[in-house]
Amino acid sequence: MSGLNLIQILNGLTFAALLFIVASGFTLIFGLLRIVNLAHGALYLFGGYIAYSVTGMTGNFALGVLSSMLCVALMGVVLDLGLLRFVRGFELRQVLLTLGVAFVLNDLALVIWGGDTFSMPVPEMLRGAVRVGGGFYPKYRLFVLVLGLVVFLALWLLLNRTRLGALIRAGVDDAEMVEAMGINIRRVFLATFMLGASLAGLGGAVGGAFLTLYPTADAEILVFSLAVVIIGGRGSLVGAAVGALLVGLLNSIGQVMFPELAYFVIFGPMAAILAFRPLGLFGRAA
């Protein structure tokens, strides 16, 4: 295994943690609302820029992250109530609409923040490196790894230990039946859309510090998120976690060992998984 060492594996794991944060939001929306939200990457990028601006103005990293999540969640509300409601039930139109929104948001970001590359400023306590094995590893990336675990745990508890979580899972199984039990499924949808969008915002804010923010970052993260969700299976939290680990590790291994095949290393196995499990590893038929 030439060139593959602990650092590369940690790089893979931390990238996986970020991918999980972004893709978990994507899979929640995909699973419950049946919307492939192609604007998810744009929400990520917007979240990153907002966090960058707010942190720049206030010098407070946490405030930047929170305002990013809040703003992007609100953008999710506008997207769901303002646009997607008009194409409810038409899957192709929904996808095209979100693609259009992605382009508009991307251009809007270009107008507001320009085409330069920014790096989200990291608070003092997360700067520098810690000793890992025989080398040093950036503290911040380890923070992202921990954050990914925290988000997984929080989402797991939300989905499996709360009534809203039970409603979301039931809605993924059979939304009409949930509605027939007296639940306004639209409200559950909206809450899920906000939650999913805020996770894109969180991803943009924390990812902006080590992947940096630039005009095409949205498309890149979107492609990775799609791969994660397709591998893991629509609407599955555990699937998103496993998919993110797979994509994150394959990505860093691929970059080190087969740099000229970096994309194939991810999308080759994805195609193979799809050939045998068309619904993804943890996916279920609707």
Partner: peptide, 24 residues
């Protein structure tokens, strides 16, 4: 009315094929 509003008026459905939630 929407289905949830009908259900709120205390009309319940036991649907054909049961339609339980596999995840619950």
């Amino acid at each position: 009315l929407s289905p949830h509003e009908v259900a709120k008026r205390r009309i319940a459905l036991v649907p054909q094929g049961r339609r339980l939630f596999p995840s619950l």
